[in-house]
Each structure stands twice: as structure tokens, then as C-alpha cells.
Amino acid sequence: MSHEATTRPGETAAAAGSGEELRPVPFRGGGFKHRPLGPVAPIVFLAILALWELGARSGFISPIALPAPSEALAALGDLIATGMLWKHLGASLYRLIVGWTLGSLLGIAFGLLIGLFSLARAGLLPLVSALFPIPKIALLPLFIIWFGIGEGSKVATILFGTFFPTVIATYGGVDNVDRNLIRMGQSFGLSWLSIVRKIIVPGAMPAILSGFRISASIAIVLLVAAEMIGAEFGIGAYILMAGALFALDQLIAGVAILSVLGLIIAWLIGKAEKRLLAWRS
């Protein structure tokens, strides 16, 4: 273990290289690593649109099967020009926001109950597991009887659809909070409420926010389903009407609006994650 017999790198190389040829060690560590490639996504998107447009113009894609993107764009322009876009979007956003907010708040409340109290877990968790897989669309007629044909049944569909995934995400998050942090809180004599507020809820926040991503997508899916019945306005109603009339350009325009809506919501949740979870690396 003596460090006195140090040699300079050059000498070692010369010593080892006596008589034998020097070869570099081949590099084997490449691959399996993602690089950020910013412009690829828009290029792929535009290329598909261009191919589609070209196919439609040349007659390769029949207009009965799929309208050209330019036609869908024109339908969208119509929607904006007549001012109907805001009416449809307003009605849909109202249902989406009210349903999703109530569903998420109730979901977090029940998720916390299940996460914190043995009695709630024993009593409610089987119920949640039993009701979660039911397609809420199937319950729509029931909701209409219970909450009326108006906004009530539509909001309720979205509410129930977002409630269950939020419950599951929340109690999973509570279960995953580091037990040592809770023990630390107890060891410093923190009150039960303080431990819940300052340790458990922030600790479960990453799971709750990723639950939001899922529940927001479910909410958009259910929005269209809920607007199938008795809705005058709404993006879902617009799409269904277009489908019934075989106005495929309008249908594509409506679907594109939903897709953009989904993107905006995902972006907003990403922003919220950045803000609320800045403490993570």
C-alpha cells in the first residue's frame, strides 16, 4: 500500500508496450439511450398530413372514406366563422371542468380516507374495486333518471368516471409515503393532522398528479359519451351530429378539437407537476 513507487503514465505505457503492439480498448457502451430530437415530432405530423392531403387530392383516398385535411380545416373555419365553436367548446368545457373537479376532489377525499383509516379501507376498497371496472357509459341511462336529462347526468358521468382512478391513485400514493418520514413526525411529537397535512399529502402528491393525467383523459372520453344523449351543444354532440349526417369533414374537425383539448390539459398538468413537485430532481 505504499504510494512511493509511483510511475508516470508515459513510463507505464512504454513498459507495457515493450515488444507488443498497442491496441485501443473497443468502445462497447453505446446505444439504449434516448436523445432529445425536438423537430422530429412536427415533421412526422406534417408529413402524415401532407401524404393524406396528397392521397385525397389524387383520388387515391376516396372522399367518402376520409375527407382531405384541408376540408376538415375548412369545416373548422366554418365553425369559427359562425361562432358555433365557442358555444360547443363552452358547453363541453363546463361539463368537463365541473365533472372532473368534483370527481377529483371526492376521489382525493375518499382516497385519503382509504389510505389513512383501516375501517374505511376494509369497507370502501372492495366497493371501489367492484365499481371501477364498470363502464360509466353503461350507467348513463341510470344517471339520466337520477340526475335529469340536462347537465346533471352529463356531469355525473364524468364525475364518476374520474372519481375511481383518483381514489386508487391517492390511496396508492398514501401507502407509498416513506414510513420513516411518518415515524420522524411522530418522534418529534407532531399532531396527527400535522403529519397528514405536512407529510402524507405532499408525499402522495406525485401519485395524485399522475392520477390526474389518467382521469383527465378518461373525462374527455366520457364527455363525448355523455353528450350522446340530449345535448344540444358540446364537442361530443357536434361530432355525433356530424357522424349522423355523414359530414366527415366536420367529424374530423371535432375529433381534432378533442385531441387539442387533451394536449392542452396534459400541458397544464405538466405545468402543475413542475410547480408542485419542484422538490424532485
Binding site: D178, N180, L181, R183, M184, I199, P202, W279, R280
Partner: peptide
């Protein structure tokens, strides 16, 4: 504590 038990947030 061995693992420090600091609240990361």
C-alpha cells in the same frame, strides 16, 4: 435517523 428523514419538499 440513519436515513436523515428530511422532508424532500
Amino acid at each position: 435517523f440513519q436515513d436523515f428523514a428530511l422532508l424532500p419538499w
